[in-house]
Design a binder for these strands. Sequence first.
DNA 1: GAATAATGGTTAAACGTTTAAACAACTATT
DNA 2: AATAGTTGTTTAAACGTTTAACCATTATTC
Lengths: 353, 353
Amino acid sequence: MLKRSSKGIKKINIKKKTTIKDIANVLNISAAAVSKALHDDSRISAKTKKAVKQVAKNLNYQPNHLASALRSGKSNLVGVIVPRTNSNFFSSVIQSMEEVLNKEGYNIIITQSNESYKKECDSIDTLLFTQVDGIIASMANETVDLKHFEKVKSKGIPLILFDRGENDLNVDYIGINDYQSSHMIVEHLVKQGCKRIAHIGGFKRTRIFNNRIKGYIDALKKHQLPLDDELLIESSLTIKEGRKKMAELLQLKHRPDAVYVAGDYAALGALQVMNEQNINMPNDIALVGFGNEPFTAMVTPSITSIEQHSTDIGKQAAKTFLAYTEKTNIKQKLNKIILDAELVVRDSSKKEQ
Amino acid sequence: MLKRSSKGIKKINIKKKTTIKDIANVLNISAAAVSKALHDDSRISAKTKKAVKQVAKNLNYQPNHLASALRSGKSNLVGVIVPRTNSNFFSSVIQSMEEVLNKEGYNIIITQSNESYKKECDSIDTLLFTQVDGIIASMANETVDLKHFEKVKSKGIPLILFDRGENDLNVDYIGINDYQSSHMIVEHLVKQGCKRIAHIGGFKRTRIFNNRIKGYIDALKKHQLPLDDELLIESSLTIKEGRKKMAELLQLKHRPDAVYVAGDYAALGALQVMNEQNINMPNDIALVGFGNEPFTAMVTPSITSIEQHSTDIGKQAAKTFLAYTEKTNIKQKLNKIILDAELVVRDSSKKEQ
DNA sequence: GAATAATGGTTAAACGTTTAAACAACTATT
DNA sequence: AATAGTTGTTTAAACGTTTAACCATTATTC
């Protein structure tokens, strides 16, 4: 309550934030003029602008984001939804998106779906509630129903998907060429002399995994290798599933001499099982993963994998969002960006010649 | 511009969001009454409340967060700053914080400092700009100067630190008992018969690492083991540094028979070097890490480590923040919560008896 | 049956900006 | 000298809520 300091009583610091109005009072001009000056409006004289900015600095003025967002209808916030942040791929995508967006005055809000459909819906509600100006997302594994994404679109809020997307949604998408990546992997394995290549894939219903499966099949055909049903397995690609499916493959009368796993975590599970059973990698069985998570280089043997250029993906996703915010926003056509991936060959598949 | 559909012209969906006012109009009551009804104000009759809620649902009303935040001065947003999300510890802390906070109507904004002091400052500015109601942070490795945190405090915004904190700041803190954890580790190694235990620690200037060092020293003394300067090393605890420091230890005339590394990533580096040099773990040299990152269980040999109960830390941090928001907020005293950690023994230190 | 209390609202201002429209004081044009 | 244009500013409304203060009924009390 006390505003002035008085003897013996410590000055109570009333943290009244300085507003545009305070600046106006100091200079004896209107609040509107201050607002315009701060935004470099052409109708304000250079002299006034300079004075306003000086006073703003002196009073340590910080614009009230809520007020301007309310008035202008723009929050300058972008929502990001990822299955989890705890993966090098996602955290690195986020980092590069952030970099691009911050530069343009946008901040990001990160939420995790934890691969759960329900949490994904909640995340969307949260973000809409926070009045984000756009949403960049990668779908949860569980997600089949797309109503919640439709909702975003129907509100006129830009929606950009990356990595895990859906064609039916008809939104912007940034990802890598999964089909071609599978080709690269199979080709590499063939070169190493492998003739019986298994694939522990993701669920076909998810487009990227379906593409990897298709690429695998077509590449086998191309090299006139037999396509054996028991060598093509669908799974959720967790470590546990990787272990289980690998164990199943090892039960086969006619074992594969290479296993291509559509995700690094599942590949790790497979590696563990093979290590436990003293299988020589790559000579008995070669192993390839997908995603180039850092641990692929750490384990023994190190795992060959696909680098997805997360930094590029993040950058492109951010730019795609920014395109919506530009004034010259005349019926922008959808952006479908497919980046080329890169095979990183490591011990698990590199046979000595 | 078109609001009504006319023949041949597709209805243009004007996405006018429904407001409290729309609801009021439908029911022929005041907007204020609607607001109160939605907040279950006691001055509104049950009948009216029911009607309001029904109409709100029908019109698909979504409260405008910006407006309420502006008016009430509360954004219901909590800012979180972590060195990186790409670590199981941090992502798991975040997840449990989120859970607690969401339940109370708060959403979180995550930002990463990337262990950089400058980015940490930027993050704070970003969060203050977004008018968060509080900040929960873990300090970057680089951070020494604490002005940016003082700024938060001086604005009267609750600041809670976890894991990497600073005593001088005089803010709430949640972490584990680093000193005691070191004791547990040394004790475990002694039990395994180790007599020359090295410590690759973090920088002394960071309190948690200093505590680990102190714990290490005191535990050695307690067991009357020699404290050898060349066995106590400071480092930044990256994988690379772990490799380097381990290589140095192996150069010693009198090698250690156990190495306790204050971070899992550095421990991994140490492990790689020892594997490369065909050192038998744990029999030649036992290895212990800190943090219980998932990969510690994946590598060969699996690494003994300290579980920090990230879920608890997150929960406590969130609760500490919530305590500030309660009305009965009479000069709350600082919360310093120190949780007990747990030693997870794995192959890298478990000698066969 | 007058005073008091309880109930269930309404009014209007406020939060800090932005912005369309109005206006005043010049300068330039015819 | 009248008109138009330019420049730099002010006014006032608006964004969608929340909330203090007020008011009108109806119920309760003695």
